[in-house]
Amino acid sequence: MEAPSTDDLSATPQLPMDGAEWVELFVREMTSASNMDDARARASRAWKFWRSLSENMMLKEQVQALIQENAILKRAVSIQHERQKEFGDRNQELQHLKQLVSQYQEQLRALEVELANS
């Protein structure tokens, strides 16, 4: 009696985690094949599943890297925003001080004129 052919390896109760488990799964699939065509079909499904899994793992790693880069960029933007705010505050303070200097210069001129007229 032959083992039933699986249409999809993802129907496997627990997916292999390491190379040895993948080898065991592949051997089981091949020994369950009823003929060469069935073995080819099983090998093809195993290859497609493995390739899909590999691509998914690669994409997951890329997403994790992008998430880390995004966090770094968010922090950089936050720091830049704080610096911009500090610059704005200092610029306002500078403008206020320039205005005070201008007022004091006018007062000084007025006092000099007053002193010259006395």
Rank of each mutant, 00 (worst) to 15 (best):
Q68F: 04
V27I: 07
V23W: 05
S34N: 07
L115N: 15
N56R: 04
A110G: 11
A11D: 10
R109S: 11
S102P: 13
E55P: 00
L73T: 03
I72T: 13
Q105W: 10
T6G: 04
K48N: 03
S34D: 06
D7C: 07
K60R: 06
R83L: 15
Y104I: 14
V101P: 10
D89Y: 08
S102A: 14
L53S: 06
V77N: 04
Q103L: 11
P13I: 00
R75F: 05
R28D: 08
F87Y: 14
A116L: 12
M58V: 01
W22F: 09
R28N: 10
E55R: 06
E24T: 04
L66M: 05
S78P: 02
W22A: 03
A39F: 05
K48Y: 03
R28E: 05
L97A: 10
W22Y: 10
Q105Y: 11
Q105E: 15
R40N: 02
L66F: 01
E61I: 01
Y104Q: 14
S34K: 08
R51H: 01
D18Q: 00
L108A: 13
M30P: 06
R90W: 10
A20L: 06
S5M: 06
I67L: 03
W50T: 00
P13R: 04
E24W: 05
S34M: 04
E86S: 13
L97P: 14
K98F: 10
I72R: 06
V101C: 09
E106H: 13
S118C: 12
V63D: 01
L53K: 01
S5I: 11
H96Y: 15
I72F: 01
R42F: 01
S10G: 05
L94S: 09
F87Q: 09
A39L: 05
I79S: 06
D37P: 02
W50E: 04
T12S: 02
L100N: 07
E82H: 05
I72Y: 02
M57S: 07
S102F: 12
Q105M: 15
D38W: 06
D8K: 10
E93D: 09
L59A: 02
L59Y: 00
A76S: 08
R90Q: 12
R42S: 00
A65R: 06
L115K: 15
D89R: 10
L115H: 13
N117F: 08
Q105A: 13
I72P: 00
V77M: 07
F87P: 04
L73E: 05
L94W: 12
N56C: 04
A39G: 08
Q80Y: 03
E2W: 05
K98L: 15
Q64I: 00
Q14Y: 08
R28A: 08
A110C: 11
S52E: 03
L111Q: 14
Q92V: 10
Q64Y: 01
L115I: 15
M30H: 03
Q103R: 14
S54D: 00
M57Q: 09
A39Q: 03
A20S: 09
H81I: 05
R51Q: 03
S5V: 10
N70A: 03
E61Q: 00
H96D: 12
L100D: 12
R42P: 02
L73K: 04
R109I: 11
M36D: 01
S102T: 14
A41H: 02
E114G: 12
A76C: 06
W22H: 08
N70G: 05
R83I: 06
R90T: 08
E106A: 12
E61F: 00
L108K: 14
R75T: 11
P16S: 00
L115W: 11
N117H: 15
